[in-house]
Design a protein around this nucleic acid. Structure first.
Lengths: 347, 347
DNA sequence: CCCCGAACTGTTAGCGCAAACACTCGGATA
DNA sequence: TATCCGAGTGTTTGCGCTAACAGTTCGGGG
């Protein structure tokens, strides 16, 4: 059955080696090869060596589909995320992937455009049928909660960034604590109160930051201005900033993320209000460019990479059947730069 | 084994339905179910409807592992990327994932910390081990070229952002063309020449932008200043900006990305040089916050999402055995905002 | 010297699906 | 009327692997 001219009819290359080929070459049964690969300690050292030689010589790689069909395991993890172009989710994903890689897991991602019960179920199902061993769900929206309460009970899952206690472990940054730090910092500089530009309504991080900010003002007996609402974008920060710039009472602004703070900075400039001489501004996230804005932005740093690592650790505990820590918080850190200063002395 | 009320979202059933269950419910054989799913036109409409009803009622989803075992396909794609927290790679990944999802492909990612022959081979092998149907390699480094020339010939692959012609299809943005546009724009505003802050040495995008910039200056017979070198970060932009601010000759700066441009803007401010009255600045990328910097940054927009989509399309052609377009360029677009203006009239 | 169990290796079966082939049946064809 | 045809469906088989169980070997205790 010689192959003649090209024709590309059938690959002239011999088929990829399968377990049986390795077994034949090593003079053992396929089962022994399987054992060498999965439970090497149960095979006599010299047999093991012979098998491993054969594996190497044939360039054998086990067929993932076959293994996964019979074991129900895949060595892959699923990540359901909302929008991986945002700085936070992208960094979290990166942290998860990094941790997974060092433990020989692969990461499969599914982005969803909306977070609700149906979209989460659908994404999880897609992953489940790819036989992932577990899923991490990055769910920064309040509206995701419903979906998170109805995850399939037999699939190890971990949630990143959810608020309340769930039937699954949660890894999150303590948003409220970050907001508390930002607000206290501004008050400590002498400002009478702090205006807040919050994130969009449905976001957990946004409302947690509002709560942290409000709690400090309440505790200190300060006036609590109505928070303005943005959508995380620099554009919305700019618009809110224009509004705030008009009010001479405003001397301290806490923006719920750095991009909005960027817009606020610009709006203040354009309105002729100097930062930090006239108005102090604090952001949230500590995006890489924050130190190089003008002026360098004081902000609250969230260690997303750490969150990703934590999420992976929790998931691994789940997969291995160890009882997992139910809820773990990572503390954010206030980073003071030059966008915050003492309250201007009233003339 | 009665089902309780249940919110249809996930089956409480101990075992998920398999094809045989669907077949039994529809009163047909498993093979017919398989045909309904794969080649519906070969099944009589009423039979097809009965089967689809059964599929819906049982919440049946085919088992990927089993299908993949028999077809040799997995419905998963691999993406090898360098650093998915950078804006460009993250957006590209997002574009790939989006395109893949609409075609019912899943995306598995592997990040590498360095791009060389070994790391690429290693990443590709990990993916291959998972039986991905093909891989997209996002390889923005010159040093990746070696690895890209030695990809396994039997695995469909596509490269994003490589420069030269490779044995595999390439999807890329025409970086040089973008640089040409930015440089021409500045010259057309009356500047005598344009200073360039480039990206790090090993990056293809960086050197392509240098070439585009240099070619325009050469063609127009302008003085060609030594380009400064940054590392994409706002920090490096800031440092370069301080240096440039000292030289009164400098009236036009083309920074190789927006983050560096952000740093340049700040350095110029601090040195008391106004933008755009004294110095014009152009960036590259059009990051979301670019319109909200102060002043709004003129820049070159790269449509990363489109690149991702293109890469997926090329890969799909490869997988399906159609002859793929070897090299496809996407044109970047100059976006003029307020950081560029006429050359200051020399006193 | 035999029996027994631990350590190792082999055999059988089947995971869920689709390719290949076999069958059925009604209508068109000669 | 006998035959063919082909659309529609069923049956068999095996993809490559591992779980479960069945042998085999070997050394030590009775």
């Amino acid at each position: 059955m010689t192959q003649q001219v090209s024709g590309q009819t059938f690959s002239e290359r011999p088929r990829a080696a399968v377990m049986e080929d390795v077994a034949a070459r090593a003079g053992v049964s396929a089962m022994t090869v399987s054992r060498v690969l999965n439970t090497p300690e149960k095979v006599r050292p010299d047999t093991r060596a012979r098998v491993l030689d054969a594996v190497r010589e044939l360039g054998y790689r086990p067929n993932f589909a076959a293994r996964s069909l019979v074991t129900g395991r895949s060595g892959a993890l699923g990540v359901v995320s909302f929008d991986t172009t945002l700085y936070g989710p992208a960094s979290t994903l990166h942290g998860i992937e990094q941790a997974a890689r060092t433990h020989d897991y692969l990461v499969t991602i599914v982005n969803v455009t909306t977070l609700n019960r149906r979209s989460i179920a659908e994404a999880v199902n897609r992953l489940r049928f790819q036989s992932v061993d577990g899923v991490v769900i990055v769910a920064p929206h309040e509206s995701a909660a419903d979906g998170l309460h109805h995850l399939p009970p037999d699939l190890p899952a971990v949630v990143v960034g959810a608020r309340e206690s769930l039937p699954v472990p949660v890894a999150a940054v303590d948003q409220a604590a970050g907001a508390v730090r930002a607000t206290r910092h501004l008050l400590s500089l002498g400002h009478n109160t702090v205006w807040h530009l919050s994130g969009p309504e449905d976001w957990i991080d946004a409302s947690a930051r509002v709560e942290g900010w409000r709690s400090v003002l309440t505790a200190e007996g300060r006036q609590i201005p109505d928070p303005l609402r943005g959508d995380w974008s620099a554009r919305s920060g700019f618009e809110a900033g224009r509004q705030l710039a008009r009010d001479p009472e405003v001397t301290a602004i806490f923006a719920a993320n750095d991009h909005m703070a960027t817009g606020v900075l610009r709006a203040l400039r354009e309105a002729g209000r100097r930062v930090p001489e006239d108005v102090s501004v604090v952001g949230f996230d500590d995006v890489p460019e924050a130190p190089y804005l003008w002026p360098p932005l004081s902000t609250v740093r969230q260690n997303f990479t750490e969150v990703g690592r934590l999420a992976f650790r929790l998931l691994l505990e789940r997969i291995d059947g160890r009882t997992a820590t139910p809820h773990r918080m990572i503390e954010p850190e206030l980073v003071v730069r030059e966008s915050t200063g003492a309250r201007p002395t009233p003339r």
